[in-house]
Simulated scan of single mutants.
Amino acid sequence: MSNKNWKDPELREFKKIIHRKILFIVLAILLTVAVLISYIVYTHFYSMGHLPEGKWIQSSTSPNQQYKLNIYLVNKGGATVAYSIRGELLNVSSNKRKNIYWGYREQAANIIWKDNKHVSINNRVLDVRSDTYDWRRE
């Protein structure tokens, strides 16, 4: 009888350890899946870095020639999807490119440089050093 009492607490402690390990593994897997799904959703639906290329329609250069804004018309296909405009900024000195404009239901771009660092695209004024416009975030 004393042998049985000795094993029961040991067995209960062993089961607790196993349950904790299983719980930890399940939580780790769920967290990994959640992070992976969040990353995929962000990069494909919200990131300006993964926009479709489109067809070049016009360019405009800043007054000091430091920046060049290339405008692309994007048609993702299908009868239910409207045209979009993508504005890609090129820093001429560093040759770095970044998307600063993503407008939905637009087929043309009216570009007016306000000064060397501010541009108006379809009446939306952006500081090319830091601002972006993305219709999905309105």
Rank of each mutant, 00 (worst) to 15 (best):
K76L: 14
G78M: 11
N95G: 03
Y83D: 10
N91K: 01
V74L: 10
S94F: 02
I71T: 05
G87Y: 01
L69S: 06
Y83M: 14
L69Y: 01
L90R: 08
Q66F: 01
G87R: 04
I71S: 00
V81C: 07
S93E: 15
V81I: 09
S93K: 02
I85L: 06
A82V: 15
L73C: 02
K76W: 00
S93N: 13
N70H: 09
N75R: 14
S62A: 10
P63D: 09
Q65M: 10
V74W: 02
A79F: 15
G78E: 12
K76T: 12
V81A: 10
L90I: 04
N64C: 13
V92Q: 13
R86K: 12
A79R: 13
V81F: 08
I85P: 00
V81P: 01
A79D: 15
A82T: 15
I71C: 05
L73Q: 07
N70T: 04
G77Y: 13
P63S: 08
V92F: 06
L89R: 11
I85H: 02
A79L: 15
K68G: 11
N91T: 10
L90T: 10
T80H: 15
S62M: 06
N95S: 09
G77L: 13
N95Y: 00
S94V: 06
P63H: 02
Y83T: 14
L73S: 07
S94H: 00
I71K: 03
Y67N: 05
L73F: 07
S93V: 05
S84I: 08
L73W: 08
P63K: 00
I71V: 07
Y72N: 02
Q66M: 09
A79S: 15
